[in-house]
């Protein structure tokens, strides 16, 4: 039992290393073109957050739309620490993760305590995004309408004001870590508990699973990662502003997670890469022609995927994995 688990983890680790190395090779192939690097960095940002969302949304089946709140908190914590006390972002990003996890606790504890589920939980979390956005707009000592630009000269490691390739490689490492965390959680008791909650909450409760605590743990792991990685939004754009509490991010993350296929580890990430690149491609090709037409296509693609592949893209991707023999998903997909 123990050794088979170890072997499984080792196998997954191999897949993750393959993905990371593959990702690491992309920039040199593209000759460090700034535009492609920036696109890829944003896609990676989303991929990491989607992968984190997978823990609460995919494994646990909780439709969390709080990603915008956590990324915003990450940005503001990191930015405020830097602007007020000159604390370097290297520390700030993790502080951002902690604050986001704290807020995850604040919203999650009572929500799960009072049994919020499904759409009600989704609404509570997306409402949180708007509440925080408006709160930071009014709270002028920290937020306010004015953008607060982050200090530092270009190329400074202390201020993490770096060329895109640095962010890209940091995020590749982050993605590898989060993917491995996904594997770890999935193999652990927490993972089994989360799956049981997703399948049938009442039955899980009856069988002695502490449903509240399970969900809360999943939520806080996700919030921590989202807060930490979310602060890169501020680092890349170079300022903090209440618009970083963005409901669009919440919707994007959730929809990518759902379309990717709930509970699968790699499919949401791969889906993010496919759909976000398609979106950016449509934008460059069609964007200048008729405003909005590329997003019509994007919306239509999303609907088609959900309507005709209810399992998400993972159903298709699994066949592809089987063909190329990667990811060894035989065991893992049937849950």
């Amino acid at each position: 039992m123990k050794s088979s688990m170890k072997r499984e983890i080792y196998k997954q680790l191999r897949s993750i290393v393959i993905i990371s190395v593959g990702l690491a090779l992309i920039p040199p192939i593209l000759q460090f073109n700034n535009y492609f690097l920036l696109v890829l960095t944003y896609i990676l940002l989303y991929a990491v957050i989607v992968s984190a969302w997978n823990i609460i949304g995919g494994f646990g089946g909780q439709l969390d739309l709080g990603a915008g709140a956590f990324t915003g908190l990450g940005c503001f914590t990191m930015g405020t620490l830097l602007l007020r006390w000159n604390i370097p972002p290297v520390i700030g990003v993790f502080a951002g993760g902690l604050i986001a996890a704290a807020f995850g606790f604040i919203i999650g504890y009572p929500s799960f305590r009072f049994g919020l589920k499904d759409v009600w939980y989704a609404l509570a979390t997306i409402a949180l995004v708007v509440v925080l956005k408006q709160f930071f707009t009014v709270w002028e000592q920290v937020g306010g309408p004015e953008e607060r630009y982050l200090p530092g000269t270009y190329g400074s490691l202390y201020y993490l004001k770096l060329p895109y390739s640095y962010y890209y490689y940091i995020l590749v490492v982050a993605l590898a870590i989060v993917l491995f965390l996904n594997v770890k959680v999935k193999m652990s008791k927490l993972g089994y508990y989360l799956f049981s909650v997703r399948e049938n909450e009442d039955a899980a409760e009856m069988l002695g699973v502490d449903v509240r605590m399970t969900k809360l743990k999943g939520l806080m792991i996700y919030a921590f990662i989202t807060g930490t990685i979310g602060s890169f939004f501020a680092l890349i754009s170079g300022y903090i502003h209440p618009t970083q509490f963005n409901t669009d991010i919440s919707l994007q993350i959730a929809i990518l997670g759902i379309v990717g296929g709930l509970g699968s580890i790699y499919s949401p990430v791969i889906t993010t890469f496919i759909l976000q690149s398609a979106s950016e491609y449509l934008r460059t090709v069609l964007g200048g022609w008729i405003p909005g037409i590329h997003l019509i296509f994007y919306g239509a693609i999303l609907m088609i995927i959900v309507l005709f592949f209810p399992e998400g893209l993972s159903a298709i991707l699994n066949k592809v994995y089987a063909k190329i023999g990667l990811f060894s998903l035989k065991k893992e997909e049937k849950k």
């Binding site: 007020r84 000159n86 982050l150 530092g152 000269t153």
Partner: peptide
Amino acid sequence: PSPTPTPSPT
């Protein structure tokens, strides 16, 4: 707020 260095992009 403590004085923060002003950004001077190069």
